[in-house]
Amino acid sequence: MQVRTFQASKAGAARHENEDSVDLRRRSPGELGIVLADGASTGVFSKGWSAHLAATFGEHLDCALESFDAVLELARATFSPDLSRHTALRKFLTEGSFATLLAARVELVQDAGRGGERSYALTMAAVGDACLIALDADGSCVLAFPCVSAADFGNTPNLIRSSAKLQERTPYRRQNARSPVRGTCTLLAATDAFAELVVRKVACRQSGELLRRLLECEEEARFAALVAELRRDHGMKNDDVSIVLIQDGGDA
């Protein structure tokens, strides 16, 4: 599998303020673990919480896809931000930190019964609006999870809180899915701003050009320029962006 990861910060924010976290683990030549977490900036320690969630779910991915709550409990129990600032302590105790999460296992398999055709076996879990999208070469959408239309993205996504007690006030909805996808597809995991744009472009059959431009990105600077253009000319929300691009490189 060929894997590329790009990140861009919200316009006006410094790079270190990017509250998205990506955890990628190559588990074997044909198997990849992906976790994207998007810290909500209204909360305290958003970056730390998203990084901790991504790392914990990345480390325990198989368990998380079977028993999400157990891994979340572990993440909450081991999250220890610096609470020395009195404002941070009070905000953490009264509101906590929160983030969206997408966890996925991507396995590239060879189907002996179909002339050796290769396909991806996807196993996914999500809370919120970070998405995994599979696109054909012409940009048409083969799979989108968990959001399938622009209406599924909003200003109040489901969020995972750092405290189980605080979570009781705002329960989240978790979605799980398994799906095979043709190996000729490009897989795109993305946080909400970019994912929303892709879904919107798919709906108006303009995603082919976007996919082409995306695949031309070889380095961070080119991706940053593309993001700036998408914000300026295509109505993409000004938010932190993280994406993971996966293509079958024929290596497994």
Partner: peptide, 11 residues
């Protein structure tokens, strides 16, 4: 107002 400015890891 200060708590509303407590973002990420800083005020």
């Amino acid at each position: 107002v200060i708590l509303s400015c407590e973002k990420g890891d800083e005020i």
